[in-house]
Computed example of a mutant assay.
Amino acid sequence: MKNTEISKNQPRKIQKVGVIGGGQLAWMMADAAKKLGVDLIIQTPHKDDPAVSIAKDIILAEIDDGKATTKLANSCDVITFENEFINIYELSSLVKNNVIFRPSLSVLKPLLDKYEQLCYLQNLGLPVPNFWEWGKEIESLSFPLVLKARRHGYDGQGTFIVKDIESLKSQGNSEFLIQEFIPFEREVAVIAARGVTGEVKVYPLVETQQENQVCRRVFVLDENLELVKEIEAIAQTLLNSLEVVGVFGIEMFITKDKKVLINEIAPRTHNSGHYTLDASETSQFEQHLRAVCGLPLGSTALKTRGAVMVNLLGYEFGENYYLTKRQKLETIPNSSVWWYGKTESRPGRKLGHVTVLLDGENFETMRREGEAIANQIENIWYS
């Protein structure tokens, strides 16, 4: 790969973007790539992964296969990430050969281990729950607590709520961190992007609703929440401190006494931003590619007053495309059904999502409408 870092005097158009990871997040980059005239080259382990169908070229290999990423680098102008299950040390040698990663490996390094991530956020002065590394002091902790895998946890996997010392000892070890249990009032998230020039754009704050540590619903509502400016400042501080190029998802708690605490950082596009495909001037996927390609960032404004997004989660083991249910969901007014094309269903697996645009007169009206539509979607899907 030639060095394609954009200079102030002579920017070079990036035409081929390598993506490590071939799941639905890479798949949802397809429309944006076509719009921007960019080819996507995907490194992914399975020929039936969602992004295989939209890629210009495929390198079939595990995500952390450094040799495969070397091959990927020789086929594209810049490399980005669909997930964080990479071997950062394997990739470090490629940087010495002028391979460009966006976000850079130096950005990812303090974030991939969730304990190190919390340490980094704390050192920046950003608000986080109390947390502990696995060690002798566990005997003195108060319960309940949250036990989290330091690496490779996602969609609720690797996260447990423990209520006593016996459960903590039986489930935990040095591969886990311990986090204070927050009896929050609301869970919220924000998508933020930063370009190569340092320009930062923050999307509207959303409320997320989880079940078994998996996101079920996302509400985008025209709410004048007092904490929005504080949350936007958190996003600005984080992205600027790291010198991010790309899109990040930031998950947060709002406590009962109206304090904001960061739960986790996702150094990539994020489930809480899927609504942007239908409800925003610029989707999070287009925004990410714009940042990666050195293009100006797009508008984060909503095209509608609000929206609700509901994940279609697997609830059984087997192979099923759920065509009849998807057809029923498509009859809901102002709905868009996104089906990821996965061939296998299992409980909790994200198979698709539905976004419905809202246009209520005020926050309370849209909230009621959004809850009713979310219930309607789930009644169809889980019946």
Score class of each variant (00 low, 15 high):
Cys119Asp: 11
Gly156Ser: 06
Leu295Glu: 15
Glu199Gly: 09
Val206Cys: 01
Gly21Val: 11
Ser299Asn: 12
Gln24Ala: 05
Pro347Met: 09
Leu25Ile: 02
Leu357Ile: 14
Leu295Gly: 08
Asp155Tyr: 03
Ile262Tyr: 04
Gln236Thr: 02
Leu357Asp: 03
Glu369Trp: 01
Pro127Asp: 08
Lys258Phe: 11
Ala73Ile: 06
Ile377Gly: 00
Leu205Trp: 05
Ala32Arg: 08
Leu40Phe: 12
Ile377Arg: 02
Gly158Lys: 00
Val190Gly: 13
Ala189Pro: 13
Ile88Glu: 09
Ala235Gln: 03
Ile63Glu: 11
Leu108His: 01
Asn334Gln: 14
Glu369Thr: 10
Leu205Val: 08
Ala307His: 01
Glu187Gly: 04
Gly135Phe: 07
Leu111Trp: 02
Pro45Asn: 07
Ala68Arg: 01
Lys201Met: 14
Gln236Asp: 12
Tyr340Thr: 08
Tyr382Met: 07
Asn362Trp: 00
Pro333Val: 09
Lys71Cys: 01
Glu180Arg: 01
Arg12Asn: 06
Ala372Lys: 09
Asn87Ser: 09
Glu82Ile: 04
Val99Cys: 14
Lys256Phe: 10
Thr208His: 06
Gly341Phe: 12
Thr365Met: 10
Leu227Val: 05
Val228Ser: 09
Arg290Val: 12
Thr304Asp: 05
Ile6Glu: 14
Pro144Ile: 01
Thr159Ile: 15
Phe81Met: 10
